Simulated scan of single mutants.
Amino acid sequence: MITVIGFDGGPLPEPARAALASATLVAGGRRHLDAAEVPHAAERIVLGALDALYAALPSHENVCVIASGDPGFFGIVRQLREYGLEINVLPAPSSVATAFAAIGLSWDDAIVVSAHGRELRPVANVCRAFPKVAVLTGPGAGARELGAELPDRTFVVAQRLGHPDQRIETLSSHAAAHAEFADPHVLLCLDESRLTSERGWIAGFGGVPGTWALPESDFAHRASMITKSEVRALALSRLAPRPGRLVWDIGAGSGSVGVECARFGAAVVAVERDAESCDRIRANAATHGVAVEVVTADAALALDRLPQPDAVFVGGGGVDVIAACAATRAATVVVALAAIERVPEAISLLTKSDRAVDGVLLQSSRLSALPGDAHRFAAANPVFLLWGERR
């Protein structure tokens, strides 16, 4: 039997002390082994890779593994179970719970992500999309690196939680990009303009929205200059928005595509050159309770300074814009066109960027009332929807 002990820097409870006292092998991080009351006769293994622990297990009956906080929360429990070991877990409060408690903030509505040993981009995208995010950091993927990636956010950086030299700092994401922090630390990334006191019933991300491809009436727009719901439905299926992904909405107009992507949990950057339209995008995002970063600029001049996307929707812009979007690392680029003359050129640009290209002509007719309780189907303007997927 292996006993996994959660350690938060304070005195261990009696069951943990009893398990540790009888252990003949104790494994953990160096700071955990130094802080806990490890029997003098017990073999010690400083954990890095788990190979040394697995190799030593056959020689011992009573084994303890010491880990930070709750070992079942982004911790070692999963790895030990996957190896087929029988374990008994004695958890302490997780570092995330301890960090939120330190600033007196509830966290049932927080998203929790781990950057430890993982790519930073998806973590940054979750921080863009959600107002309350806890990040379990690692070397090279902490508050400093995330501060350089993110727009204005409030960072709470909790270092050495539970230890006598515990330190909790509150600073802007921009200030964090130029600061130094002890590893590992817990980062709380807050968009204070969107924090709410509303009580929910499900923890973290609530999942996909109940409806999508919303009617045009759900968005403020100018003179019907909006991507119609039928087109949006297919575009969303190709863009595949979800937490951890970043979507560009280029030539965003009302921002309806970007807002819908944000409702699925994606981070969104909308680029639109008309200042009045940008105000509408912000208003539409606020109405639907999502974050959309709005860039007021000509897309041809702005794209090279945006964070790299995972998917792109091009609703407006010329040949140069389509070419620039096709050249990004995005897995999928979706282009909506009204003029048939632009279709061959768009296909060529997507193909030249080593993308597999497909598309449809969307022609829809909507039910429309006539006098005398009669109805007809009124044809909407056709739209060409192309998509190029990175090979």
Rank of each mutant, 00 (worst) to 15 (best):
G147A: 09
I226R: 08
C127I: 07
H163G: 00
A346I: 03
Q79V: 01
R121K: 14
L386M: 10
D310Y: 04
L12W: 01
C189H: 10
R280A: 12
R376S: 14
A324R: 14
G315N: 02
V294H: 09
L20I: 05
L303H: 06
A213T: 04
G258I: 04
A291R: 13
A23M: 02
H185D: 09
H185Q: 15
G204E: 08
E14M: 02
P13K: 06
R242C: 13
I226V: 12
P58E: 11
I281N: 07
L105G: 11
V208I: 13
A283T: 09
A252I: 06
R329H: 06
G289I: 03
L195N: 12
V343P: 08
R263E: 04
S173Q: 10
R160M: 09
S364P: 01
E43G: 02
L349Y: 12
P164C: 06
A177D: 09
V321F: 03
S22T: 10
R222F: 12
E86P: 00
D152S: 14
F384H: 15
P71L: 10
D298T: 08
K132E: 10
P184M: 13
V321E: 05
T227V: 12
D274L: 02
A110Y: 01
E43H: 07
S229C: 01
D70T: 07
L306T: 01
T351K: 14
A176S: 15
H40C: 04
S197G: 15
C64S: 01
G265P: 04
T351P: 02
I76C: 10
G9L: 04
F73K: 11
A380I: 00
G140T: 03
V208S: 14
P11R: 06
A36M: 09
G244I: 02
R342W: 06
A267W: 00
P184L: 14
V335I: 05
P91V: 09
L57A: 06
R78N: 13
A356Y: 06
A323K: 13
F7N: 01
L53H: 09
F384L: 05
L33R: 09
A374W: 12
L367V: 15
E230M: 00
E169P: 00
A35H: 11
S254H: 02
A336V: 03
L195M: 11
L386R: 08
F219E: 05
L361F: 03
T98Y: 01
G204I: 06
L236C: 02
R263G: 03
S172L: 05
I347C: 15
V156E: 10
P122E: 09
A148L: 09
L386V: 06
G142I: 03
E14A: 14
A331W: 04
G255I: 04
F74S: 12
